[in-house]
């Protein structure tokens, strides 16, 4: 994924930075446009990191309220989207710490997905057996992610789930490229360990 994809820079609509400028000039509707533009991204991020849709919706609100208050200090040194991701990741981290709601082994993150989205997840499966197997794998992966330390979750979310490349992840997390690579490697190895029992049972 490219960081430019969402920010309007390649379409006939205002860029994020233009919206920020408009908002700071007193146009509240510009902020609402930013909300509409980024709510899905923030929701998904929070959902994957917290493993619970209701928490994700709460954090999403917190992020945009925080954004509203902090936008005056946005200095434009980074892209707005990069800045937003950082704010969102921090908010998720804080939320996880405060609520101590790291999903336990007995919980099954994703079970609160609406039915329509569960069906969408299975879209493309060409046989009921394959569909069931696929759902099982996804469930195991979601549960394994939930058991990871936050630092590993966020890098797997950014790179492997959202598809940001190494450079973009480095920008968002404000770490070096080498650190991205080594952290991602460790996160994946840990995830693989978490999935080992599941793989062993697979035919």
């Amino acid at each position: 994924m490219l960081l430019d994809e969402l920010d309007g820079s390649e379409r006939d609509r205002p860029t994020d930075e233009e919206l920020v400028r408009d908002f700071l000039a007193g146009n509240g509707a510009a902020f609402e446009e930013l909300v509409t533009r980024y709510q899905p991204t923030v929701m998904n991020m929070a959902y994957r990191l917290l493993g619970n849709r209701s928490d994700a919706a709460d954090v999403c609100q917190e992020v945009f309220v925080l954004l509203l208050r902090k936008l005056g200090s946005f200095r434009g040194e980074a892209k707005f989207s990069t800045w937003l991701y950082r704010v969102s990741l921090n908010a998720c981290h804080d939320y996880a710490r405060k609520s101590r709601r790291n999903v336990s082994l007995s919980e099954s993150p994703g079970d609160d997905l609406p039915e329509i989205e569960q069906r969408l997840a299975d879209e493309g499966a060409d046989a009921p057996e394959a569909s069931m197997e696929r759902a099982e794998v996804q469930k195991a992966v979601r549960e394994a992610i939930a058991r990871l330390p936050f630092k590993f979750k966020e890098i797997i979310y950014l790179h492997d789930i959202s598809g940001y490349n190494y450079k973009e992840v480095a920008e968002i997390l404000d770490i070096s490229l080498g650190t991205v690579k080594s952290r991602l490697n460790r996160a994946r190895n840990r995830l693989a360990v978490e999935l080992r029992d599941f793989w062993e049972q697979m035919p």
Partner: peptide
């Protein structure tokens, strides 16, 4: 598997709730 995990979309209720909060 990670890259094909399903994404979620905010429901109309969640969109409305967020906009109300922001307003």
């Amino acid at each position: 598997e990670l890259s094909s995990l399903p994404t979620i979309s905010p429901s109309p209720g969640e969109r409305e709730e967020l906009l109300m909060r922001v307003r």
